[in-house]
């Protein structure tokens, strides 16, 4: 048990919390925040797990940097879409008024 493993376990916990939020919450912004929580948890697992045994490993750190940029891009895009959607429809969730078979993004 090294300190870095502690990060990995914390990451697993964050993934679980994020997962719960992602399924449970209806408000789109909260859903997005929950997704970011899963993302942070994943990055913690990636960095924390990789350096068990032998000191710091630069490769997963670089991977996480790439992952962060990708998730920032996705988050920013989602915010733009959410704001536009809210502006046009006045709803903050996808389910507000739709009719067809609907779990979709909630899964």
């Amino acid at each position: 048990m090294t300190p870095s493993l502690l990060y990995a376990f914390a990451g697993a916990g964050l993934c679980g919390i994020g997962m719960f939020g992602f399924i449970q919450l209806r408000h789109l912004l909260r859903k997005l925040l929950a997704f970011n929580l899963i993302g942070s948890g994943t990055f913690l697992v990636l960095v924390g797990l990789a350096q068990h045994g032998q000191g710091p490993d630069a490769v997963p750190q670089a991977l996480v940097l790439t992952g962060i940029v990708v998730s920032i891009a996705a988050t920013a895009l989602a915010i733009v879409l959410i704001r536009r959607y809210f502006h046009l429809s006045g709803h903050t969730s996808l389910e507000a008024d739709d009719s067809d078979s609907g779990q979709g993004g909630a899964e």
């Binding site: 493993l5 990995a8 697993a12 916990g13 993934c15 679980g16 997962m19 399924i23 697992v45 068990h52």
Partner: peptide
């Protein structure tokens, strides 16, 4: 329950990998 199962399974596999 689903998220707790995820955390437990993840924790177990992390422990095994470590």
């Amino acid at each position: 329950l689903a998220s707790m199962a995820l955390v437990l399974l993840l924790g177990a596999s992390l422990w095994s990998i470590a």
